[in-house]
Design a binder for these strands. Structure first.
Lengths: 194, 194
DNA sequence: CTCTGGCTATAACGGCCGTCATAGTCTACC
DNA sequence: GGTAGACTATGACGGCCGTTATAGCCAGAG
């Protein structure tokens, strides 16, 4: 055990993901993340000895896995349904937060590497994007789309949704998301019918 | 006059846009912006009395107008050429900076409003997005695309490019941009032929 | 030459930052 | 019951933040 009795660590990660999705990584302090999770500051350095970078990395992976779970489930009904769920998920986040929250993965991806190396959190963001694309692409292939075209379309879908979510926040409107949703759904529907 | 002899102000704005496109707004300090433009800190508050928000707002508008100028010029040769230039512009920024720079407008759009009001810089980001969309949509309409479809496609293009630029930074690869470029060009080409 | 006003130089203000250290508490097992 | 180890409490460290204030420079208008 020593597992079942520690939701505190997960609360910190989930809270960090939420705060990063709203304010970005560098504008979110460890003190605020701890307070938001009702955990003492010392605990964050107990659970995440490598500090902010580690916490950010885990927050990115946490979000990645959470979205991937929903995606995997809905893709069982086909690419169109999977895409619809993907769009609905992000629409919910943006609208329910009154256009204050977005995607923490994008927020971390937009972070200049301090030196010449890619920090782990940014690398995790790249992996999460790739994971979402892979899920979508596999489902497209399973429904008759040629492999390379499936990969390209999956990239377009993920990138377009990420960009549209950011755009919705700036405009304080869900209209862009609804507009791109329609077109992406048409694209996906067209790609599997052949 | 009192205009011709002051490139200092513009240097600050342009430098701020560059730094914001790399590090994001909250991670870029006014001191660093001043130093980057080789201007004294006091000058920033002389030129921008409302502080960081004003400087960010002007940096967003500056980038918006710079991109719009390129877009307007290339759209004279039609939507496909305009899109190609738009894509090439962002590809150059991402690749030339070794995947360290992106779009400052997106970086500002991803910023939680502190209170219940939208800060001016975020509002400016929304206007810049709308401006780019309007230019693209107008060109599409001029080439036979139905009005509402033109607007929707323009939104998709801008959002997809913004999202893809961010994705390229995370992955440290221009591949996503090349992949989405191909598909967006096909979409635009298809929309004007009818 | 004087004077005005745009620009600069310098320093200070309170405040929050990431990180670390140290001493405590409390629980779970031997 | 004792003891180890997971967690917490507290406070400190140097450093950078946005912003403001004040005094000084120095070109150009009168």
């Amino acid at each position: 055990m020593a597992e079942r009795r520690t939701p505190s660590r997960e609360r910190i990660v989930a809270g960090a993901a939420d705060m990063i999705s709203r304010r970005g990584l560098s504008a979110t302090s460890i003190r605020e993340m701890a307070k938001h999770a009702r955990a003492p500051l010392g605990s964050t350095y107990h659970y995440f000895p490598e500090g902010k970078q580690q916490l950010a990395t885990e927050a990115v992976r946490y979000t990645g896995e959470w979205v991937a779970r929903s995606l995997r489930k809905e893709l069982e009904s086909g690419p169109v349904e999977g895409l619809r769920a993907f769009l609905a998920l992000w629409r919910g986040i943006v609208v329910d937060s009154d256009f204050r929250a977005g995607c923490p993965v994008l927020a971390v991806a937009i972070e200049e590497p301090p030196a010449d190396e890619t920090p782990p959190a940014v690398a995790a963001a790249a992996e999460v994007f790739a994971q979402w694309e892979a899920l979508l692409a596999a489902s497209l292939r399973d429904h008759g789309t040629e492999a390379e075209q499936a990969a390209r379309l999956a990239t377009l879908v993920v990138a377009a949704v990420e960009g549209t979510v950011a755009m919705c926040r700036a405009k304080r409107s869900a209209q862009p998301l609804d507009d791109t949703a329609e077109q992406l759904q048409a694209l996906v529907a067209g790609a599997i019918k052949r």
